[in-house]
């Protein structure tokens, strides 16, 4: 999500609410010798408002489920997402005043830490989602969606298998000894089986030998000098295509890295939000009970 002019309404509302909260604190509880406490009237109301903000923010995942959207007259999901963002941030003000900016007991401390991680991960998500998509558009000429990586890699594997078979002959169906097979094969097949093909999977091996454009270029230059095929133009065409696939895979690996930062915060944000909900309910119950 990118912060744009459609957010101004929410920003204005949350800013005014935060300023009102600070003003109320300035006029009354600021003079309390003990400082702000969650058990005071002001602190309790801050806790209630902060909880409502968090509940609103927590509704968003439910709205993603079609079954919950019973009424089409509900505001669009973009509106909820904007509310999720700004009310979540507004809750920091309320919860801060509620807690008195202290950690407190074990449950409250756990709740506060989880809450802070949720907020920080959310802010991190907002930042990376505002910056990275644009940068990826500029950096990558052809962007592949994360859900297509496996399909693209499979297509590459099939294509490259066919190209190598075409140049080196069909791959033996059964080899009694792997070393024997490797020693018998020509340099291209050995290079393809040992170095290139392991990289044509969704998860790139950490120690893939072709992790830079320079290495790819060097490896294929070496191959061109080693291969002695009668049809030189065909061999050059196939090697060129294989080199292109390697470069594309490298490009895709960079995209996957960006995707990790773009979406990696979300499991933490959602997982801990669920924990926050459980701990919050327990906190509300025990705090009001005692």
């Amino acid at each position: 999500m990118i912060v744009r002019h459609t957010h101004w309404g929410w920003i204005a509302f949350c800013t005014v609410a935060a300023l009102i909260c600070v003003a109320v604190w300035w006029m009354g509880p600021r003079h309390n010798p003990e400082g702000i406490t969650g058990g005071s009237t002001f602190g309790l109301w801050c806790g209630v408002l902060g909880s409502l903000c968090m509940i609103f923010a927590g509704i968003l995942p439910l709205l993603r489920r079609r079954a919950v959207v019973l009424n089409s007259r509900l505001p669009p999901r973009e509106w909820w997402l904007r509310g999720h963002l700004w009310l979540g941030l507004l809750s920091v003000v309320f919860i801060g005043f509620h807690s008195g900016f202290r950690l407190g007991g074990a449950l409250v401390a756990a709740l506060t830490i989880v809450y802070l991680i949720v907020i920080v991960s959310g802010i991190l998500g907002l930042v990376v989602q505002s910056i990275l998509p644009h940068r990826m558009t500029v950096s990558f000429h052809q962007e592949i969606p994360p859900g297509q990586v496996e399909a693209v890699c499979t297509a590459w594997r099939k294509e490259c298998d066919a190209l190598v078979d075409e140049l080196c002959g069909p791959r033996p169906a059964f080899a009694a000894n792997v070393h024997e097979e490797r020693s018998n094969s020509d340099p291209l097949r050995r290079f393809y089986e040992e170095q290139m093909r392991p990289g044509l999977r969704e998860m790139l091996p950490i120690r893939w030998p072709l992790r830079s454009e320079k290495r790819i270029r060097q490896a294929f230059e070496q191959l061109r000098s080693q291969i002695s095929s009668p049809d030189r133009s065909k061999a050059a065409s196939i090697l060129g295509r294989l080199e292109t696939v390697c470069l594309e895979r490298l490009d895709l690996a960079r995209q996957q890295s960006r995707f990790f930062w773009l979406h990696g915060w979300l499991p933490i944000h959602i997982g801990l939000s669920a924990a926050l909900l459980v701990l919050g309910i327990v906190h509300v119950f025990t705090a009001l009970m005692y």
């Binding site: 859900g147 297509q148 496996e150 979406h263 499991p267 959602i270 997982g271 801990l272």
Partner: peptide, 23 residues
């Protein structure tokens, strides 16, 4: 191009459910 990509569970979704359950 995988036309049925939306039917598959991505690592992101798996991690989301695992972390939620774990937390």
């Amino acid at each position: 191009y995988a036309l049925d990509y939306f039917r598959k569970t991505s690592w992101r979704q798996r991690w989301k459910w695992w972390l939620t359950g774990l937390a």
